[in-house]
Computed example of a mutant assay.
Amino acid sequence: MKIIQIGTGGWGKNHTRILSQLGVLVAVCDADAQKSKEYGEKYSVNHYDSLDELLDVEEFDGAFVVTPTSTHTEIAKKLLGAKKHVFVEKPMTYKSEEGQDLAKLAEKNKVILTCGYIERFNPAVDLVKKMVKDKKYGDLVMLEFHRENRMPLHIKDVGIIYDTSVHDIDTANWLFDDMPQVVFARAGKIKHEHEDFASIMLGYKNDKVAIISSNWITPKKIRKFNAVCTDAIISSDFITQEITIEKDEESEIITNEKQEPLLLEIQNFLGAVKGKNEQVVKSQEAVNVTKIAEAALLSSQKGIPIYLDLK
């Protein structure tokens, strides 16, 4: 299998490392010619600063798009038009209509289009998903997510909702196996050009709810979530991948073998390209996350709940 990567900045360097380790990386492309050359030489692959030139020269099966959000649509459209399988880092697009167009193009050309919602591949989330599905601790009623950290320096074109909260929006949809009917949010900015703190409430059917709290203000890195079930509270840490079950007076800690979620996510995409029945994030699910992020920003601006009808 032959895979190319567009974008080698901030988060992209991790994709390059893993794709090279897996022996599938054949070329990198970055608008910064110096950076492209650096990574091409580091991993002994061809390097380009023009996607059009790469498309003319290279034979490949799939592509990873790890560039600023504002560039995703144009790049993904070219790749899908060339009938290549495409993995786009989250969020898939800044505007949901553009994501919808990409999803239609992928369907028309019979290729995979997926998006990097990495927490689905976090072993802790995977285990909680199994517990919820099996109703091991009764019905899932409420989810609470808490992410805080200093702002990543490479993020310049979006605020915290599009960069950070989207992870938890997707994870909530995944764990509830449903889409929210209503969004209410408050967000603001203290130190940055875009919003740098946000609290989002997603209302699902049967009064189920997800509460997502994100900020780029506090110095400590926190990535935690709670799944409140009718018979227990399941608490987990996205970083340590440890899970705590609290039931009545009892408390139990489950430690998984720690694994790198990005490696699992990339292996999942490669398996899907090979035709294996992998559970990739569907393009429509990624479009819906963008719609929910749009609704959260609108809710915060207007101070009202936004009702949704997502398929």
Results as ranks from 00 to 15, higher is better:
residue 4 I to L: 01
residue 7 G to L: 11
residue 8 T to R: 06
residue 9 G to A: 08
residue 9 G to V: 01
residue 11 W to P: 00
residue 14 N to V: 10
residue 15 H to M: 09
residue 15 H to S: 12
residue 17 R to H: 10
residue 18 I to H: 11
residue 22 L to T: 07
residue 22 L to E: 14
residue 22 L to A: 04
residue 25 L to V: 04
residue 26 V to F: 01
residue 27 A to E: 00
residue 28 V to S: 11
residue 30 D to T: 05
residue 30 D to P: 11
residue 31 A to N: 07
residue 37 K to Y: 12
residue 37 K to N: 14
residue 38 E to H: 08
residue 40 G to M: 11
residue 42 K to P: 04
residue 43 Y to K: 06
residue 43 Y to M: 10
residue 48 Y to P: 09
residue 50 S to T: 01
residue 51 L to D: 11
residue 55 L to S: 05
residue 59 E to S: 10
residue 59 E to L: 01
residue 59 E to I: 10
residue 60 F to V: 01
residue 62 G to N: 07
residue 62 G to Q: 06
residue 63 A to L: 04
residue 63 A to Y: 02
residue 68 P to S: 12
residue 71 T to V: 12
residue 76 A to L: 06
residue 76 A to N: 09
residue 78 K to Q: 15
residue 81 G to L: 10
residue 83 K to F: 01
residue 87 F to L: 14
residue 88 V to N: 01
residue 89 E to W: 05
residue 90 K to N: 09
residue 93 T to V: 13
residue 93 T to G: 02
residue 102 L to Q: 09
residue 104 K to A: 15
residue 104 K to H: 11
residue 107 E to A: 15
residue 108 K to V: 01
residue 112 I to F: 06
residue 118 I to W: 01
residue 118 I to F: 04
residue 118 I to N: 07
residue 123 P to R: 06
residue 126 D to Y: 13
residue 128 V to M: 13
residue 129 K to L: 01
residue 133 K to V: 05
residue 133 K to F: 08
residue 134 D to A: 12
residue 136 K to G: 00
residue 143 L to H: 04
residue 144 E to A: 02
residue 145 F to C: 03
residue 146 H to Q: 04
residue 147 R to I: 02
residue 149 N to S: 12
residue 149 N to R: 05
residue 153 L to P: 04
residue 155 I to W: 05
residue 155 I to E: 08
residue 161 I to W: 08
residue 165 S to E: 05
residue 168 D to I: 00
residue 169 I to T: 11
residue 173 N to W: 02
residue 175 L to A: 15
residue 175 L to M: 08
residue 176 F to M: 03
residue 179 M to W: 07
residue 179 M to I: 12
residue 184 F to Y: 15
residue 188 G to V: 11
residue 189 K to C: 12
residue 190 I to P: 00
residue 194 H to V: 06
residue 194 H to F: 15
residue 195 E to G: 01
residue 202 L to M: 13
residue 203 G to P: 03
residue 203 G to R: 10
residue 204 Y to Q: 15
residue 206 N to S: 12
residue 211 I to E: 09
residue 213 S to I: 03
residue 213 S to W: 00
residue 215 N to A: 04
residue 215 N to Q: 13
residue 221 K to M: 05
residue 222 I to S: 07
residue 223 R to W: 03
residue 225 F to Y: 13
residue 225 F to R: 02
residue 226 N to L: 05
residue 228 V to C: 02
residue 228 V to K: 09
residue 233 I to T: 14
residue 234 I to M: 03
residue 237 D to W: 03
residue 239 I to M: 02
residue 239 I to L: 09
residue 240 T to D: 08
residue 243 I to P: 06
residue 245 I to K: 02
residue 246 E to S: 14
residue 251 S to M: 03
residue 252 E to M: 07
residue 254 I to M: 14
residue 265 E to F: 07
residue 265 E to C: 15
residue 270 L to P: 05
residue 272 A to P: 07
residue 274 K to Q: 15
residue 275 G to E: 09
residue 275 G to H: 10
residue 277 N to A: 13
residue 284 Q to M: 14
residue 284 Q to V: 07
residue 293 A to K: 05
residue 298 L to Q: 13
residue 299 S to N: 08
residue 300 S to R: 11
residue 300 S to A: 15
residue 301 Q to P: 00
residue 302 K to A: 11
residue 304 I to P: 00
residue 306 I to S: 04
residue 306 I to E: 02
residue 307 Y to P: 02
residue 311 K to E: 14
